[in-house]
Design a protein around this nucleic acid. Structure first.
Length: 639
RNA sequence: GCCGCGGUAGCUCAGGGGUAGAGCACACCCUUGGUAAGGGUGGGGCCGGAGGUUCGAUUCCUCCCCGCGGCACCA
């Protein structure tokens, strides 16, 4: 007798060993048809896996948290089968499920084209329609190696050779095709359905190592239903529409060009946006008791040697030769410079914590392939600060930092923030006691700040544990922006000290922290978050005064002056165009408020305000309009 | 840096061994209008760069640069 406990607590008994498929069938024909896999005492298995002892099981169907991963992994297999049918001689390697779909890496001399992708996708559909049974087999190790070797599948053969001697070699057969795979899989290709789409072909290194040969990666997306697939494809379209590089050009914010690859030419409107964000950040930092500094761009190699950067990060640093004996480097980070300020004079424990902020422009020689609009540049400005404090202050400083960060993210329109907590790596500086203390303080602080966090074991910096703050944007994408890193090493290397209560010299701890990360990247995120439709306080042009006829020109200038004097960013549009045309143009330019003035407004001293995206107008006296727009355009203060 | 795909007007793109194309944008003219495109006319190009093949190259070939999608990288 085998007793099977179902998720609702009910128990079903079977005479002997039973499979998940049989349990599903015993419950009902509908479930039997929908079943994808089975979760057996918490681990995912094939539906055909024999259950020989009492167990708790769940039948996994669409809608189950594990279903998507299964479908995507199967989709990768169906892709591989289609590719090998269509292009004999192509070798298979790995093909896992990912966050939004799956990929499979192939080895083939000839590149896949976009037309190939369409062909492959059609063949995948046929394989699903064939409803090939998917069967798990356990093979002998040597036989498996021989099989793949003789079949010209050197990557698979190599993979088996690197597996543990006692590893169970499982093969999944699907129709005439088979693949080495851990599973589990659906019972047949038909259950995959058609909610998948191939998206692109790109390069990827064998085993993710750039020293290895490069394979061709075919990436696709796969969902539980056509509806979900469509929603995802719409999201991708929406993301493309919001692309900050496109909006940056269309809205006249910035441009980039060959002559300064990886740097930004900010145009007047873009720079206004940048300065507005900077002014906001400066106000928030000042209110949080930070002091602001400015440190040199070019700093002698000797300081970078002392800080350790020259040894570890030389590759990414731009240098300039002052003369044959002197090499200067453009700073890739601000921290060593901040320590120099800290070291001037004598610091007392009474001065701690000292929160030293800089909107520091850094240069890093990023590999050409890494550059991406404003997201990844070679010259960028961090909203950087270093908090010099005692070990006892780590916790309280972290709590207040988390609060400041959350408040700033909220002000900027991001409500969902998560934290990754990276603890001690294998190779590290500092004693275990110090690490215990730092990690404990950080963990306590995150919990007190009320933030959700996930553990990133062993991913901390060699000099200390760190927090990484991830925010979710309007279309569900995640961006890692803020960070807080505890550093015991740099104060030591650069000999920073303070005089304690006991009159002795002590080492301060440094907290490296940033909220936006870099202005460039964060502005890119903001552009995409708002799709260019910035809230009033951030919009580079807040109001356009548009005339209906030239009779209203003089009045329009008066209206513009009134808005400008109230501190608003206002332009006029006096062109000889119809009001429809002007409204359309400024709406497409995403100007938040259009003030329309014609003869009637000029006579009555009024304006007709039209909000971006709105269909109606408000007719207000000029003074009233100014007061109202001014009130709405006040930058947030975290209150 | 690596693989693949691109680079034609300010933008989006078509074309293709023999005078370089469209739409939008821009300029000028007409139109002075009431909340998302009024009409006409016109200017605009080293077809990314360098070499090669050819009577002739924007088109074909080679190399380089830059961009795009990934990979690797991201202290």
């Amino acid at each position: 007798m085998v007793a099977i406990t179902l998720p609702d607590g009910s128990v079903r008994s079977f005479d002997g060993a039973v499979s998940g498929a049989e349990v599903a069938a015993a419950i009902g024909p509908r479930l039997a048809k929908d079943a994808l896999a089975v979760k057996l005492d918490g681990s995912l298995k094939d539906l055909a896996t024999p259950i020989e002892a009492d167990a708790r099981i769940e039948i996994v169907t669409r809608g189950h948290p594990d279903a998507l991963g299964l479908l995507r992994h199967d989709c990768a297999h169906v892709l591989a089968e289609a590719v090998q049918e269509l292009y004999p001689g192509t070798q298979v390697t790995f093909g896992p499920a990912t966050e939004t779909g799956f990929y499979y890496d192939f080895a083939r001399a000839q590149p896949f084209s976009t037309e190939d992708l369409e062909k492959i996708e059609r063949r995948m559909g046929e394989i699903v329609d064939r409803d090939e049974a998917i069967v798990r087999e356990v093979w002998d190790r040597a036989a498996a190696i021989r099989h793949f070797d003789e079949g010209g599948e050197k990557y698979k053969a190599e993979h088996i050779e690197t597996m543990a001697q006692d590893a169970v070699i499982t093969i999944y057969r699907q129709g005439n095709w088979l693949d080495l795979c851990l599973g589990p899989h659906l019972p047949s290709t038909g259950r995959l359905g058609h909610a998948f789409k191939l998206l692109k072909v790109s390069g990827a290194y064998w085993r993710g190592d750039s020293r290895n040969e490069q394979l061709q990666r075919i990436t696709g997306t796969c969902w539980e239903s056509e509806k979900q697939l469509k929603a995802h494809l719409r999201m991708l379209e929406e993301a493309a529409k919001r692309d900050h590089r496109r909006l940056g050009r269309d809205m006249g914010l910035f441009h980039q060009q060959e002559a300064a690859a990886g740097s930004v030419f900010w145009h007047p409107k873009g720079w206004t946006l940048y300065r507005t964000l900077e002014t906001y950040m400066r106000a928030r930092l000042e209110a949080a008791d930070y002091v602001e500094v400015k440190t040199p761009q070019l700093i002698d190699r000797a300081l970078w040697e002392a800080s350790g950067h020259w040894e570890k990060f030389r590759e990414h640093m731009f240098t300039a030769e002052a003369d044959e004996h002197k090499v200067l480097a453009l700073k890739p980070m601000n921290c060593p410079a901040h320590v120099q300020i800290f070291r001037q004079g004598i610091t007392s424990y009474r001065d701690l914590p000292l929160r030293m902020a800089e909107f520091g422009c850094c240069h890093r020689n990023e590999p050409s392939g890494a550059l991406h609009g404003l997201m990844r540049v070679r010259a960028f400005t961090q909203d950087d600060a270093h908090i010099f404090c005692t070990e006892d202050q780590i916790s309280s400083e972290t709590v207040s930092f988390c609060a400041l960060l959350q408040s700033i993210y909220r002000d900027l329109g991001f409500d969902e923030v998560t934290v990754k907590f990276s603890d001690r790596p294998a190779t590290r500086a500092g004693s275990d006691e110090t690490w215990d203390k730092a990690e404990g303080a950080l963990r306590e602080a995150v919990e007190e700040a009320g933030l959700d966090y996930t553990l990133n074991p062993g991913e901390g910096a060699f000099y200390g544990p760190k927090l990484e703050f991830v925010l979710r944007d309007a279309i569900g994408r995640e961006w890692q922006c803020g960070t807080l890193q505890v550093d015991f090493v740099l104060p030591e290397r650069l000999d920073a000290s303070y005089i304690g209560e006991d009159g002795e010299k002590h080492r301060p701890v440094m907290l490296h922290r940033a909220i936006l990360g870099s202005f460039e990247r964060f502005l890119a995120i903001l552009i995409e978050q708002f799709a260019g439709r910035f809230p009033l306080w951030l919009a580079p042009v807040q109001i356009v005064v548009a005339t209906i006829t030239s009779d209203a020109d003089d009045y329009a200038l008066k209206v513009r002056d009134a808005f400008t004097e109230a501190g608003l960013r206002c332009e006029t549009d006096l062109r000889n165009e119809k009001i429809n045309y002007k409204v359309r143009e400024h709406s497409l330019a995403k100007v938040p408020v259009i003030a329309v003035v014609g003869r009637r407004e000029a006579e009555d001293g009024k304006v007709a305000l039209r909000r971006l995206g709105g269909k109606t107008q408000e007719f207000l006296a000029l003074g009233e309009a100014v007061t109202r727009v001014q009130a709405e355009s006040t930058p947030p203060t975290g209150a």
